[in-house]
């Protein structure tokens, strides 16, 4: 096996890691572990981006890997840790109903994502063409996580993990979006997480809890 193929395989390995981590997040009940999983997912994303950069020789991908590293592996996890410390939810365990059912729905979503991405993947000029399906699956799984979670912090992590999936799609299927767009997206994500942090404090102050089920009062009746 030559070096080129090995690198290609490593990208696929990273892709699979992302997917497995997405599943792990759905089933994880501890908030602290959830943040660790999210950090790991960011790390897998960084490794995948560096590999793609090395393989294609696209230098700007190194920059986007660096942005991801700073943002998703360092800054956002630190922010999340500070939030859960200050809100004293570090050791919170969420009761989740029906993990097996959720996992089954997740598997259906993965199959669906592969079906959807299959005709397109063959067009992709990039080496890691099979990864588009995985990226879409990660997006859908994070979406599922946001639906089934009832607490604010896991919902936010689901949101961020969805961003990871999208970023992976951009890196693997194309060879990365133009630099300025990536910077813009990174900036939006950072501002978004800061605002969400502010929100969590406001919600806590208002309801004495971070349970999103309090936020179901506005209905049309």
């Amino acid at each position: 096996m030559n070096a080129h193929a090995l690198l290609g395989q490593s990208i696929n390995l990273c892709a699979v890691t992302l997917l497995v981590l997405a599943f792990a997040m759905i089933a994880q009940r501890r908030i602290l572990t959830l943040i660790h999983l999210f950090t790991l997912q960011g790390l897998a994303l960084v490794v995948a981006t560096v590999l793609v950069a090395h393989l294609t020789g696209d230098h700007h991908l190194y920059f986007s890997a660096a942005i991801t590293l700073v943002l998703k592996v360092v800054l956002i996890p630190i922010l999340l840790h500070r939030v859960i410390d200050r809100l004293h939810v570090r050791w919170d365990v969420e009761t989740l109903f029906n993990i097996p059912t959720t996992m089954l729905i997740g598997i259906v979503l993965v199959v669906f994502a592969f079906q959807l991405a299959d005709p397109i993947a063959s067009l992709s000029a990039s080496i890691a063409r099979g990864t588009l399906g995985i990226a879409l699956a990660c997006v859908l799984l994070s979406f599922l996580m946001m639906i089934v979670r009832a607490k604010a912090v896991p919902q936010v992590i689901g949101f961020l993990s969805m961003e990871n999936g999208l970023f992976f799609a951009a890196t693997a299927a194309t060879s990365g979006m133009p630099m300025i767009v990536e910077l813009g997206i990174a900036f939006d994500v950072l501002v978004g997480i800061l605002i969400l942090g502010v929100f969590m404090f406001q919600i806590r102050e208002q309801f004495d809890s971070l349970d999103i089920r309090h936020l179901e009062r506005l209905k049309d009746d």
Binding site: F159, I185, F199, L215
Partner: peptide, 26 residues
């Protein structure tokens, strides 16, 4: 309480929506 709920929904739903749009853009 109501305005917090509205803003949370606004952020999360529009965030999810616009994430779909990003995938379309990609």
């Amino acid at each position: 309480a109501a305005s917090l709920e509205a803003a949370w929904k606004y952020f999360i739903l529009c965030g999810v929506g616009i994430a779909q749009a990003l995938f379309g853009t990609i």
